[in-house]
Lab assay of single mutants.
Amino acid sequence: RTVKALYDYKAKRSDELSFCRGALIHNVSKEPGGWWKGDYGTRIQQYFPSNYVEDI
């Protein structure tokens, strides 16, 4: 599953992803609480806010 970032996001913790608008995040798994995990660049299975992305 791949999603596309709608907005920039700067990680606030070491287990979160930072990305820019338009970024493609791969291998996404839905987690409870509005935070999902995914791969972006060299960061593997890190958290990001689900309301910052859309399915593609």
Rank of each mutant, 00 (worst) to 15 (best):
R1I: 11
R1Y: 15
R1E: 12
R1T: 15
T2Q: 12
T2L: 07
T2A: 08
T2H: 04
T2G: 04
V3A: 05
K4S: 05
K4C: 12
K4G: 02
A5L: 00
A5W: 00
A5R: 01
A5M: 00
A5V: 00
A5F: 01
A5P: 00
L6K: 14
L6M: 10
L6Q: 05
L6P: 03
L6S: 08
L6D: 04
Y7M: 12
Y7W: 12
Y7P: 03
Y7E: 11
Y7K: 15
Y7C: 11
Y7L: 12
Y7S: 11
D8Y: 04
D8T: 15
D8L: 03
Y9V: 00
Y9G: 00
Y9N: 05
Y9L: 01
Y9T: 01
K10H: 14
K10D: 14
K10S: 13
K10E: 11
A11T: 05
A11P: 05
A11E: 02
A11D: 00
A11G: 11
K12V: 09
K12M: 13
K12H: 15
K12G: 10
K12W: 06
K12C: 03
K12T: 11
R13Y: 11
R13C: 09
R13H: 08
R13N: 07
R13A: 10
R13D: 08
R13K: 08
S14W: 07
S14P: 05
S14E: 09
S14T: 07
S14L: 10
S14A: 14
D15C: 10
D15H: 06
D15N: 13
D15F: 11
E16P: 00
E16C: 14
E16L: 05
E16W: 00
E16A: 05
E16M: 04
L17T: 02
L17A: 01
L17Y: 05
L17W: 01
L17Q: 01
L17G: 00
L17P: 02
L17N: 06
S18C: 05
S18K: 01
S18G: 03
S18D: 09
S18P: 01
F19K: 04
F19C: 04
F19P: 05
F19Q: 03
F19M: 03
F19L: 02
F19R: 00
C20P: 15
C20D: 12
C20H: 15
C20T: 13
R21E: 08
R21Y: 06
G22E: 06
G22Y: 02
G22T: 01
G22K: 09
G22P: 03
G22V: 01
G22A: 04
A23G: 07
A23Q: 04
A23W: 02
A23T: 12
A23S: 10
A23L: 02
A23N: 11
A23C: 12
A23H: 05
L24S: 04
L24R: 07
L24G: 02
L24P: 02
L24Q: 08
I25Q: 01
I25R: 00
I25G: 00
I25W: 03
I25A: 03
I25Y: 01
I25V: 05
H26C: 12
H26S: 14
H26N: 09
H26Q: 13
H26K: 09
H26T: 14
H26M: 12
H26Y: 11
N27K: 04
N27H: 05
N27G: 03
N27R: 04
N27W: 00
N27V: 00
N27A: 04
N27F: 00
V28R: 02
V28K: 04
V28A: 01
V28Q: 03
S29F: 15
S29P: 07
K30A: 09
K30H: 12
K30G: 04
K30W: 07
K30Q: 09
K30T: 08
K30R: 13
K30S: 12
E31Q: 12
E31A: 11
E31Y: 13
E31D: 09
E31C: 12
E31N: 10
E31W: 14
P32N: 15
P32Y: 08
P32W: 06
P32G: 11
P32K: 09
G33E: 08
G33D: 10
G33M: 05
G33Y: 07
G33Q: 04
G33S: 11
G33N: 11
G33I: 12
G34H: 11
G34D: 12
G34F: 06
G34L: 12
G34S: 11
W35Y: 14
W35H: 12
W35V: 07
W35G: 04
W35D: 06
W36R: 03
W36E: 02
W36K: 03
W36V: 00
W36A: 09
W36C: 11
W36I: 04
K37S: 05
K37Y: 07
K37A: 04
K37P: 04
K37W: 01
K37E: 03
G38W: 02
G38P: 01
G38V: 02
D39E: 02
D39Y: 07
D39T: 06
D39G: 02
D39Q: 00
D39K: 03
D39M: 01
Y40L: 14
Y40F: 14
Y40V: 09
G41L: 10
G41Y: 04
G41H: 10
G41N: 15
G41T: 03
G41D: 15
G41C: 04
T42S: 14
T42H: 15
T42Y: 06
T42P: 15
T42E: 15
T42D: 15
R43T: 08
R43I: 06
R43E: 13
R43G: 13
R43V: 07
I44M: 14
I44N: 09
I44Y: 11
I44Q: 08
I44P: 02
I44A: 09
I44G: 02
I44L: 11
I44D: 04
Q45T: 04
Q45H: 05
Q45P: 03
Q46G: 15
Q46V: 03
Q46D: 03
Q46K: 12
Q46T: 06
Q46A: 14
Q46F: 08
Q46N: 11
Q46L: 13
Y47K: 11
Y47W: 12
Y47A: 10
Y47F: 13
Y47R: 15
Y47N: 08
F48I: 03
F48L: 05
F48V: 01
F48G: 02
F48M: 01
F48H: 00
F48R: 00
F48E: 00
S50C: 10
S50G: 12
S50Y: 14
S50N: 08
S50A: 15
N51Q: 11
N51L: 08
N51V: 11
N51E: 15
N51D: 14
Y52W: 07
Y52Q: 08
Y52K: 11
Y52L: 14
Y52G: 02
Y52M: 14
V53E: 01
V53F: 02
V53T: 10
V53P: 00
E54L: 05
E54V: 08
E54N: 09
E54F: 13
E54A: 11
E54I: 06
E54W: 04
D55C: 11
D55T: 10
D55Y: 07
D55R: 07
